[in-house]
Structure formats: C-alpha cells, structure tokens
C-alpha cells in the first residue's frame, strides 16, 4: 500500500476578500463543489475598511492545497490568499462553555480550572457557570475535557483565526 504522508495535513489559509454580500457563499460553495475538505472558516473585518479577512482551516496534501489557493484566487472578490506557515503563525480561538454546577464544591473547582487556563467567568446562574476562554484550539480542547465531568450544557466556539508572527503580512 502506498501511504501518502501528508495526505491529511492541516493548512491555515488566510484570505483577504472584498467585504460585501455573497463572498462567504462564493468561498464556501467553491469548497463544496470541488470536494475540498474544509474544517473551519472564520470571517471578520480586517485592517482595511472595505476588506474582510477569512481564515480557512482545510485538510489535504500539497496538491490539494495548491488547487485551493489557485481556485480561491480566481474568485473576483478574493484579493489575496496565503497559506500560513504553521511554525510562524499564531492561531487563536474564542470559546464559551456553559457548565452545569450542582454543588458549591463543583463551582469553585470549575472557577479554579478556568483561572488556570486564563479563562474568565462571564455569567453565573444558580445552576450554571459560563466560561470564556481564548487560546489555541488545543488549549480549548484541554479545558473542555477537564470540565466535561461536571456536565457541559452548551459550547459555542468561533473557530480559529490566525495571523503571522513578526513583520510578515499577507
């Protein structure tokens, strides 16, 4: 059997796109239509007024990645596309976790965990605590695993966004 080593390598693609209706649909549609394996897309405004930045996490080998970048570049509303080098890229995600708190003991334990992960408690109710945490997706996973035993009622994640370290811009 031939094993393609980097078949499922995860890529972080950063794209500057025109900030107008339909652009997300164009990009998402491209991925579905061409059968690219997409894990996540985030969109938000960028440093330029009329441009938005999309961060796309996709899986595939080098050839697939090359096709993704080229096909994205073909979209008229896409201005720039860059595959970010994971070694010099910071990747961050925001996550909100609503945890069930049956006892006072649980409550203080959860608050402790949140503190260790530099999370914040942003909402409290008699039976729940809501934690806000930002960080790498791995860090978020770790906190989720820890508080799972208490009973997670709801999770909302933004999906990762990313930027290159240092001077580099796209």
């Amino acid at each position: 059997m031939v094993i393609k080593l980097d078949e499922s390598k995860t890529h972080i693609i950063s794209a500057l796109v025109l900030n107008k209706p339909g652009v997300l649909q164009r990009v998402a549609g491209l991925f579905t239509r061409r059968g690219y394996n997409i894990e996540n897309i985030t969109v938000g405004t960028s440093e330029q007024e009329n441009l938005a930045r999309m961060t796309i996490i996709a899986k595939g080998d080098e050839k697939v990645l090359e096709q993704i970048t080229k096909q994205l570049n073909k979209l008229i509303d896409v201005i720039k596309v860059r595959d970010l080098d994971p070694d010099i890229t910071v990747k961050r995600e925001l996550c909100l976790i609503k945890v069930h708190t049956s006892t006072e003991k649980n409550r203080s334990e959860i608050i402790q965990y949140a503190n260790i992960f530099r999370g914040r408690i942003i909402d409290v109710s008699p039976e729940t605590l809501t934690i806000e945490i930002t960080g790498s997706p791995e860090k978020i996973e770790a906190l989720i695993d820890l508080v799972r035993t208490f009973g997670i009622k709801e999770i909302a994640r933004t999906g990762p966004t990313a930027i290159s370290r240092g001077n580099k811009t796209i």
Partner: peptide
Amino acid sequence: VDPAEIGK
C-alpha cells in the same frame, strides 16, 4: 492563462 489549470 489560468494558473489553476496547471497541475490540476
């Protein structure tokens, strides 16, 4: 003329 055709 279409870079996406190269290597597709």
